[in-house]
């Protein structure tokens, strides 16, 4: 389990215990967090699970694939240096305590 705090654009915090191996998108969707849409269900082809990850944890997450980098071009909200797709980040114990910020819009 990793405790991960999903912070919505309005500041609402949702601290979830995420099972190892689950994607951050899956955890957010299963818990009904509105700020993640995930229209494609995690196939890395819709860019509606866009999130901004805690800078302090950037080096603990596997680097984005070329495919993800391509999809990050398609985000509706501003793409920043810490932009990622939540479906491509698997929870590990190393991510315990991480904050994930959700954009105002996904689509």
């Amino acid at each position: 389990m990793a405790k991960i705090n999903f912070i919505e654009a309005d500041g609402t915090e949702n601290e979830l215990d995420v099972q190892e191996g689950w994607s951050l998108m899956q955890a957010a969707v299963s818990n009904g967090i509105d700020g993640i849409e995930a229209e494609c269900g995690g196939s890395c082809c819709c860019a509606t699970c866009h999130c901004y990850v805690d800078e302090a944890y950037m080096d603990k997450i596997e680097a984005p694939s070329d495919n993800e980098l391509g999809m990050l071009e398609e985000t509706v909200a501003e793409r920043k240096d810490n932009s990622r797709l939540a479906c491509q980040i698997k929870a590990t114990e190393a991510l315990d305590g991480m904050k994930v910020y959700l954009p105002e819009v996904q689509s």
Partner: peptide, 20 residues
Amino acid sequence: RPSKGHVGMGGGTHTCLGNS
């Protein structure tokens, strides 16, 4: 009810293509 998170459209990679 807050019913989001249901699997009425499946879930994961094979989530219903036509969900939207």
